[in-house]
Structures are given as C-alpha cells and as structure tokens.
Computed example of a mutant assay.
Amino acid sequence: MNSDTLKAIDSLTITFLVDNCIEWMTKLPPGFSHELRQHLADHPPVDEMTGVPFVDLENYCCGAHGFSALIETEVAGSKPHLTLFDTGPDSVSLVRNVRSLNVPVSEVERVIISHWHADHSGGLISFLNLRGSSTPPCIVDLHPDRPIARGIAPPPKFDKVIARLPSDPTFELIEKAGAKVETSKEGHAVADGTIWVSGEIPRVTDFEAGLLGGVRWFESENDNKGGWVKEEHIMDERYACIDVAGKGLVIFTACSHAGVVNVVKDAIAQFSRPIYMIVGGLHLAGTELSYRIPPTVDFLSRQLRPSPTYILPMHCSGFNSKVALQQSFGESCVPAGVGLKVQVNADREADDKLFPPVY
C-alpha cells in the first residue's frame, strides 16, 4: 500500500498536447472540451469582413505519432502543480501545440518520461529550450536505464531489424538545457504527493507479452562491438497515477508495453482504489496484437468491478481496440485527441463510499 504517499486531490485538469489523433466533432461527456471550443471562447481573432471569430487553423494543434499530456493537480487550499507526462516524438509538434494552447511553460515543475522510446521523449529538449532557465529549474523524472539504441523487427517472424528509433536525449543534454535530472527505478510520489510515478510494472497476465519485435542495441565492454538483442518487455516503462477524492484513480498508461491489464492490477495493488479513468496508449494496434483485444476488453468491462467510469484509448491503441472498447463502454469510451481538455473535480462527501475494486 502506498496510499500514505499519494494524496487524494480536489481538482485535476488534463490537456492533451500530443497524440496521433485530432477529434473535433464527436459529442463528449461533461467535463471534456474540444480544442475548437477552447479557441473560440478565448479571444479568437475576428474576421474583419464578417465580424465573427476566425478559425485560425494555421495556429491550431497538429497530430503526431506520440503522446504528451499536461497534468494540473490541486488539493484545496494549496497551490496547483503542473506536470508534463511525456513529450511527443519530435522537436516541432509539442512546441507548436504548447503555443497553440497558451500553456504557461515556465510553471511546469516536472517532466515525467514514461519510458525510453523516442515517440515519448523526442520533444523533451525543445520543450526545455522553450521553457528557458527559470528558477527553480524543471525536474526531469527518468528511469536510469537509458538504452544506447532501440530498434524495430516487424512481423511475421520478428527476426530482422529494419530500423532503429531516434536516440533519446542523454542526461547531459537534458542538464545542458537547464533541467535537473532525477532517476528512479522505484515508485515515488511527486508534485507534492499528488502524482504517483510507478516503479517496475509486474507482468502477471498470460496474454500481455510485451512489444513483439522490440530490440535493443548492446555493446561489448571487451571489444566495443555491438549487436541487437531481443527486448520485448521494455522494463523501464512506468505509468502515472492520480487519486481524485470521491472519484478514484486516473491512470496514465504511457504505451502499455507492460499491458494495460498489468498496469491496472498494479495500481489497484498499490492503492486499493477504484479506477475512474484510464488514459493513453494501450498498444493493441496491428494484426499481430489483435488477439489481445478481447481479453483486455473483457477484463476492463466485465471482470474489473467497478469498471472504469471512462477510458480514453489514445496514441498506439489502434482502431480495432477503440471499436471494441466503444462497443463495451458506450459513451464512456471517449474519443480523445490532441487539444482536448478534461476537468475532473472531487466529491469529498462521496469518498467514504468508495470501496476497493475487485476482479
């Protein structure tokens, strides 16, 4: 149990800064708002000819293969904390979207990088450069096991490496950009105890077998020669977790290389709280992973009780998993995308009624 190190908060605001998808049209539940509505409500440019607000597409968010979310947590009576979870894939998309949504970058206290894959770490240096050398410096929360390189060996045999991923930023580059590096393999609370960053995620399911075709480059200490080694389980991956009083846990899954069921089971084991919302990549895209979709949906919608109030499958979740989740969860499966904002407010009176989930 780690409930003594994670505070129940009164207000959570999530702004999605990088995702593969942009979704403006679908009806959203209460507390969710599209980017377009935010822009039109926040002093948009006015068309001189017609006198109505102008949809300034040149300066709206762009989609990219990656993930980044701005998390604002607040306990009543205390100052809010701004934390960035992942930074997208490149030096362009996060910076553009931060500017589009008027994010107060100087107030971001910490960046959590969920795991060492470039689609989650690629925008870090550009974000830090944009933030500048404000005081105190931004903390960058990292797993210490940074790979030299990671690559892709696609199906059907997963035995031929066709490409390597871009390099993750080094600790030295991060510090040169003005940040303070903190590394940990263990679970720990940040943002004054309002966000939990997990340690190693236990792999307990029999069908969540990691990233098929994942490989890592290793070099020999004796002759400086290197080679690719299979690395399917991506053990440096971490999730983030927030407890909203009277609602339950909000889980940011990163890419779910560990498997979202393993992530949920670990969060429940840590905190014995119901799951209110699951956010992020579920890594169920591609025909080679389609067999994981039915048992994943079955666990989340039928075995887990109470089932999550909302599930937001994003980034690497894949179209088929979104369809399957929508069929089981209905409107509780939210078509989230870049630019979307979510507001979750606590219900302290209801908190005593929350019981540990069972499955």
Rank of each mutant, 00 (worst) to 15 (best):
D4G: 11
L6Q: 08
L6P: 00
A8L: 10
D10S: 11
D10M: 06
I14T: 04
I14Y: 00
I14W: 04
V18A: 03
N20I: 12
I22T: 08
I22M: 07
E35N: 02
L36R: 15
R37P: 01
L40M: 14
A41F: 07
E48P: 11
G51W: 01
V52D: 09
C62Y: 14
C62H: 15
H65Y: 11
I71H: 05
V75S: 12
H81P: 01
L84T: 01
F85C: 10
G88Q: 03
G88P: 07
P89H: 07
P89N: 00
N102R: 15
V103A: 07
P104K: 07
H115V: 01
H117D: 15
H117K: 12
A118Q: 11
H120G: 11
S121W: 06
S126F: 00
S133V: 02
P137W: 01
H143W: 10
P144D: 03
D145G: 00
D145H: 12
R146I: 11
P147I: 00
P147W: 06
I152M: 05
A153Q: 10
P156C: 05
D159H: 08
I162Q: 02
P166L: 09
I174D: 05
A177P: 02
A179T: 07
E182H: 09
T183C: 11
K185G: 05
V190Y: 06
A191I: 00
D192Q: 13
T194K: 06
W196V: 00
V197K: 00
V197P: 00
S198F: 08
E200Q: 12
F207I: 05
E208G: 03
L212Y: 10
R216H: 08
N222S: 14
D223W: 02
W228Q: 04
D236S: 10
E237V: 06
C241V: 09
G246K: 01
G246D: 05
V250T: 07
C255V: 05
S256N: 00
S256G: 01
V261G: 09
V263T: 10
A269N: 15
Q270T: 12
I275P: 02
I278C: 07
H283Q: 12
H283D: 13
H283K: 09
L284H: 10
S290E: 15
R302K: 15
T309K: 13
I311P: 07
M314R: 04
S317W: 04
G318V: 01
G318S: 06
V323T: 08
G330N: 10
D347K: 11
D347W: 04
A350C: 12
D351Q: 10
Y359R: 14
